[in-house]
Design a protein around this nucleic acid. Structure first.
Lengths: 214, 214
DNA sequence: GACCGCACTAAGCGCCCGCTCACCTTCGGC
DNA sequence: GCCGAAGGTGAGCGGGCGCTTAGTGCGGTC
């Protein structure tokens, strides 16, 4: 299932692909600010300040404040899709693939909570075009999970009443981790990932037949 | 389990308790605006306009824009707690009570999505004092669900590995309905409530023993 | 019918927002 | 040693924000 990864320390993670160094610093500053206070409550002066630059510097690298959110959303959703795709298309039974998908998806939401929060909850602040683009990525995420669940039903591993509704519930459960997860709380991202994988297998009727409690 | 209620039409629901008529109209306008665009993106001019009044009228009934959000949050959370309490403390097995709690809680989030969205997602926009007050209500909601699940474990009806974690997951699942539910979508609030009640019973190891598919 | 209290409005204050612009470095190429 | 491009700054613009204040219409009381 692969242990935590970007879970570690500073959560600086995959922003390496953002190329001018100053642009990356601004982007990371924006992620932090958006996650803490929300897109609309964050000022461009705040973002620039966190990156150690003057307010005007932001506009050398990004056309508007919205472009920052758009870039963050696209990178984040691409990463999320990659995580789900890797798990759902690997070798193994539907049961294993679903547990892997949920486990790694949840670990990403818990460990990279700052990023995940922006990616999952600030979508409505994008303009129509940008939002449409991101929603297309999101639909692909849904499709990956849907396919695994359908595989499991077809193979008889799962017992599901409403495949579409259950898919939605599974994704919803994972995504909401970004809302409540607290780094100072009682769980590590790995623990939540394992718990959620178990819960989701139960939801699709493929839970262990009661593993002797605890 | 009691069928839908405030699910119907205009979702004007329980605001009857807000007493001067103008104050109620402003509050409803604020709920709609906050739900659509978020607290920070909503202007006091927008709220007053929706209520058919001048911008200044708002300040006769409410001291600040934040007080509006505070009032909405308190009324909403009180209603949510009442729903959970009614279901979790009625007569019946833990299985029945949990299904009832999840079903009615989900119906409230789906049917009153506008309100639920504000109540569940704009909490961070409150100041420290107001937020603390609302969080206390929320903790009581958690406790109700926790108690039912613990009852079921004690009576042997449920089989749960981590009671606290499962409680959190169940509540998280219900709350996130307010994020994705769409009135024009393929499901009615009643349908989602029934589906989710089934899924949650599976999560606690009390699902039907496969009811002959479909 | 003069009076008061009160819900409400028109106008606007002071502030801070997103964003721009004129100017200033730094640095590789010749 | 000069030059232009790239990346940065300080000052500030137009505008919309939350909120206030002076004044208005109006229903109830004696």
């Amino acid at each position: 299932m692969g242990t935590a990864e970007e879970t570690a320390g500073g959560e600086a993670q995959a922003w390496g692909e953002v190329t001018p160094d100053a642009a990356r610093r601004l982007l990371i500053a924006a992620v932090e600010a958006f996650a803490e206070r929300g897109y609309h409550a964050t000022t461009t002066r705040d973002i620039a300040g966190r990156a150690g630059m003057s307010p005007a510097a932001l506009y050398i690298h990004y056309k508007t404040k919205e472009e920052l959110l758009h870039r963050i959303s696209r990178i984040g959703h691409t990463k999320a899709l990659e995580i789900l795709r890797t798990a759902s298309r690997r070798e193994g039974s539907a049961r294993e693939r679903l547990a892997d998908a949920v486990g790694s998806f949840v670990r990403w939401h818990a460990g990279g909570r700052t990023t995940a929060r922006v990616v999952q909850y600030e979508l409505d602040s994008l303009g129509p075009d940008a939002r449409a683009e991101i929603l297309a990525l999101r639909r692909q995420c849904d499709d990956e999970v849907h396919a695994v669940i359908e595989d499991g039903v077809a193979s008889g591993e799962f017992d599901v009443l409403d495949v579409k509704g259950t898919t939605l519930a599974v994704l919803s459960l994972c995504i909401d981790v970004a809302r409540w997860f607290n780094v100072d709380g009682p769980w590590t991202p790995d623990e939540v990932g394992a718990l959620y994988a178990d819960l989701v297998l139960r939801m699709v009727g493929a839970g262990e037949p009661a593993p002797a409690q605890k």
